[in-house]
């Protein structure tokens, strides 16, 4: 056989792990990583007060630069761009896991209502207990998302759960939770409400190092965990009974994967609000790039998500300057047509 093996196996000596990824993965990863880096740098350098590329790199790496550049880059733009990056990664990974778990290409945290549940709790926290710090937002939003996910699962359980009922119940719950959110907004104190509104639109405006610090641990913990679980996700994808036959503890791994997905989505939503459609788009683009095997798909999708949010952020900041559009709006404007196109393409399945 002269055909090259389509797989690369990675087996670290020390750790009881092995990954089998598509041949295309390393190349695609490098390309996506550099794209993300370029968009990050572009995002930091452009704006009301442009900073040359080289100065950006110098300021970031801590070389002596003018104090102006240092302030603009390190205090204002860099943390914000990094938050956008992490949010994109978190949402994309959450979406990838959810699509794998439900075996439904249209599932995503924002469609199923996990984001709406997370927003409800976070808005309640902002409006009702404004003195609580930003560090508490991610765990609160995580609990909100988790509560919603559990509620959806239980409500959709009718002598067995079906993906279709899962989605419909999710849409219903989204309507309910977003109504409760707007209730909060109608009756809160005015200044906290405007803060909550800005946050709800899905924006990284004014995010700085503290928010980045609150978000980072969640990604550091749950991204590698998702990666380790990728193999189990592949097995689950074959169907419950087959996965059981292959020796997978189905309910246990499914629960753990769901936890990862909700944690990533919740932490991202807590930091940047409703940045929609990233969790839907990124996995699909990733699958087109490297195929459906999750060990390769998860990192590629995460970088794709990061790239999408960075680009949305750039467009939102620059398109109507000096007015800023929140990047959640931009992702919806790009994402909803993409979603409809997906619906169109999968029409005969």
């Amino acid at each position: 056989m002269s055909i090259a093996k389509p797989w690369i196996a990675i087996r670290p000596r020390r750790l009881p792990l092995s990954f089998r990824v598509d041949r295309r993965v390393p190349g695609v990863l490098v390309v996506m990583a550099s794209l993300t880096l370029v968009s990050l740098l572009f995002n930091v350098s452009q704006g009301e007060y442009p900073v040359p590329f080289l100065e950006v790199v110098k300021a970031v790496l801590g070389f002596p630069s003018t104090p102006d550049y240092d302030l603009v880059v390190n205090t204002l733009r860099l943390p914000r761009a990094l938050v956008a990056l992490l949010v994109g990664m978190g949402l994309a990974t959450a979406g990838t896991i959810l699509q794998g778990l439900t075996r439904n290409p249209l599932a995503a945290p924002e469609i199923i209502g996990i984001n709406a549940g997370a927003s409800l709790v976070a808005v309640a926290l902002i409006v009702a207990l404004p003195q609580v710090g930003t560090a508490w937002l991610p765990p609160a939003a995580f609990l909100g998302g988790l509560g919603t996910a559990v509620a959806i699962y239980l409500l959709a359980w009718n002598g067995g759960s079906s993906p279709m009922r899962l989605i419909l119940v999710g849409i219903g719950l989204t309507a309910l939770t977003s109504t409760l959110t707007s209730l909060m907004i109608t009756f809160g104190e005015l200044d906290t409400v405007s803060q909550a509104l800005m946050w709800l639109a899905g924006s990284v405006y004014g995010r700085s190092w503290p928010q980045l610090g609150a978000l980072l641990p969640w990604l550091v913990l749950f991204l590698p965990l998702s990666l380790v679980l990728a193999r189990d996700l592949d097995t689950l994808n074959l169907g419950d009974s087959l996965a059981q036959g292959l020796g997978s503890r189905v309910e246990w791994t499914r629960g753990l994967l769901l936890l990862c997905s909700v944690a990533l989505a919740g932490a991202s939503v807590a930091t940047a609000g409703n940045v929609g459609f990233v969790g839907l788009m990124a996995p699909h683009l990733g699958r087109q790039l490297v195929g459906p095997s999750h060990a390769g798909l998860i990192p590629v999708a995460a970088l794709t998500g990061a790239c999408i949010v960075e680009v949305a952020e750039i467009v939102g900041r620059l398109a109507f300057a000096p007015i800023e559009l929140p990047c959640g709006l931009m992702t919806a404007v790009i994402g909803a047509p993409y979603f409809l196109w997906l619906l169109y393409r999968t029409r005969n399945q």
């Binding site: 249209l106 989605i167 849409i171 639109a201 919806a332 909803a336 409809l340």
Partner: peptide, 17 residues
């Protein structure tokens, strides 16, 4: 319902824009 909710999401995003 899915098409409706996606279109609804898009339209309300545009509205808030």
């Amino acid at each position: 319902v899915i098409a409706g909710s996606a279109i609804g999401y898009l339209l309300s995003s545009l509205t808030s824009g």
